[in-house]
Write a protein that binds this DNA or RNA. Structure first.
Lengths: 208, 208
DNA sequence: TTGCTAATGTACGAACTAGTACGTTAGTTA
DNA sequence: TAACTAACGTACTAGTTCGTACATTAGCAA
């Protein structure tokens, strides 16, 4: 049995970030409590100030890590061998799956928008991270136009927005939607339906 | 010059609701401060407790009024004289315009989702309010199917979701989107572009 | 083995925040 | 015009919450 270090800076830091991610996502920036975050770790509140400096810097670190983790997932999509319509459908599905798999990240996006994204300006290298996903999409759209199967007046960022909005809404607004229309947007047995619907939506829009 | 009443229950109540709407929308439920809300009115904090009972009940009243106001706007759409494709486009545009015109309401929806819509259960008659918009849409879809211009396997609530998601995202996530892609989704000179895009999107999806 | 420091824990304070006890008055009504 | 009450204001409290001063120790390096 390996003796676990009692003092492990990396482990403490990571644990704080993990718990803080959940807390900020669940309760928002002002709703999250540093005492509560600390209580849910094996360490104490003191360490939040030791490692991060304060509540705000902790939130910043949470945001930065969350976006960094996303980057990896976005690059898994390999669509070079697919014809353009199948390729955009694939890209849409990657976004769809990603949103569903990371509800905490989606909530953080909502929290950050509620604060007018004022923290994102302090998170460097975020811009080039995200643009890679759009570049991938743009390449497929260009290919589709050359093949004569796509409209030639479509902007890649607009298409990305349209895909994101569908995926985001389904996860972010499932509670009010459920209350108003008595329909669970995340019900497993409707998952395929929505996934297909998104693909139909995008390819239908792009078709000449 | 009409002498304004110094004591006016209705005016005080309304003023509190107006300011509270802004505060809750801007700072979230836990971020909003009752002292701050009171300070921005001509009355005092005491009146919040006098008229509403507490912070939570005030929030509830804000939510209820916000949804009630929406109802009126939703019923202005008159699409009986339009052919099905033009009619769904019109309905989408009404939603589009409405979202753009009421950012505070959009934020409240976000705030309420952040709290798992736990307050909406206490707001009676919300369900039948909102279903009227979907009924209108369903009627148009049925007409389109009968005319042979629309797919016959489409659910009205799904279409409503797809319209809502586009409109919601554009308003709710404009800040992170702007930070990440340097594009203002609410820029006036791109408004018509997005409005048309939404119409194309929906009609493209419905077309046989 | 011994010192040294990064890592950690405890106990506390200052500021904030929701809520309330109590007193006052404008405007109506008999 | 006198009495009554809805409407309103002031001043306070109890509890919370972020942050910190100060003490302690695990584990590494010399």
């Amino acid at each position: 049995m390996t003796q676990e270090r009692q003092r492990d800076a990396e482990r403490t830091r990571t644990e704080l970030l993990d718990v803080a991610t959940e807390e900020f996502a669940e309760r928002g920036y002002s709703g999250a409590r540093v005492d509560e975050i600390a209580a849910r770790t094996r360490t104490t509140k003191r360490m939040i100030y030791y490692y991060f400096g304060g509540k705000e810097q902790l939130y910043l670190a949470v945001l930065e890590r969350a976006y960094a983790e996303i980057r990896a997932a976005e690059r898994t999509a390999d669509v070079g061998h697919l014809d353009p319509p199948a390729a955009v459908r694939r890209l849409a599905e990657v976004t769809f799956d990603h949103h569903e798999a990371h509800p905490a990240f989606i909530k953080l996006v909502g929290v950050e928008n509620a604060q007018h994204a004022k923290h994102m300006n302090h998170v460097a290298r975020l811009v080039d991270l995200n643009s890679s996903a759009v570049d991938l999409l743009r390449g497929v759209l260009d290919r589709g136009v050359r093949d004569g199967v796509f409209r030639d007046d479509v902007d890649a960022l607009d298409v990305h927005m349209m895909i994101s909005s569908f995926c985001f809404f389904r996860v972010a607004n499932r509670h009010t939607w459920g209350a108003l229309f008595d329909r669970d947007l995340l019900a497993p047995d409707r998952r395929e339906h929505y996934r297909t619907m998104l693909g139909d939506l995008v390819t239908g829009y792009l078709r000449k």
